[in-house]
Design a protein around this nucleic acid. Sequence first.
DNA 1: CGGGATCCATTAGGATACTG
DNA 2: CAGTATCCTAATGGATCCCG
Lengths: 110, 110
Amino acid sequence: MIHQRECPIETLIHVLGGKWKPMILWHLIGSPKRYNELEKLIPEVSQKMLSQHLRELEQEGIVDRTIYPTVPPKVEYSLSDYGRTLIPVAEVMCAWGDNHNKRKYEESAS
Amino acid sequence: MIHQRECPIETLIHVLGGKWKPMILWHLIGSPKRYNELEKLIPEVSQKMLSQHLRELEQEGIVDRTIYPTVPPKVEYSLSDYGRTLIPVAEVMCAWGDNHNKRKYEESAS
DNA sequence: CGGGATCCATTAGGATACTG
DNA sequence: CAGTATCCTAATGGATCCCG
């Protein structure tokens, strides 16, 4: 996921292409979430990948990270305004992917 | 790229996620292409990856492979009707990715 | 011409242990 | 609570050789 892109499609795939990034985005669309809320919502993710993907999404400007200097510490992740521009794109991708899964299911059932 | 997906976005990323797949699709949108035309259009791709990606796109029903039993052999790859349903999706992805690249360019220039 | 097969390098991702 | 660090495996992609 490090290589440079010539085609803007690859840019988007690069941004969303981590194994858990679509799930992370999905959960953040609803409301901001704390780190360990995301861990519970996505039980299979390792915390290495969760924090790594969150840092990458933050660097792309898609996710905001808010630290509340309380004890115990509280960190909240939310979709940035810019990150919200991804929502309609994600919906189109999702619709096509959903249809594609159904198509494959039907052909395997026939 | 083998793991199963729970989220349809991952399905689309799986379909388009090979390193050269967006470029292959891009070239096939214009007109059908022969194997070695694609090699020339995408000079950096290895022939292993080109043929592997073409086989995967064919299995997903996105690309049609037509063999003309001539001597020397001629094989033509084209977007299937179903593959054309990807075009509007790709355009949305492309627009977002293009904007994202510009955004990153501007922030690095400031 | 249009590939397949093989072997190797790089990268993504997981498991576990530890920390401010 | 919210991570980092380290080590390891699996997956992706590249290079080279070969074939009908």
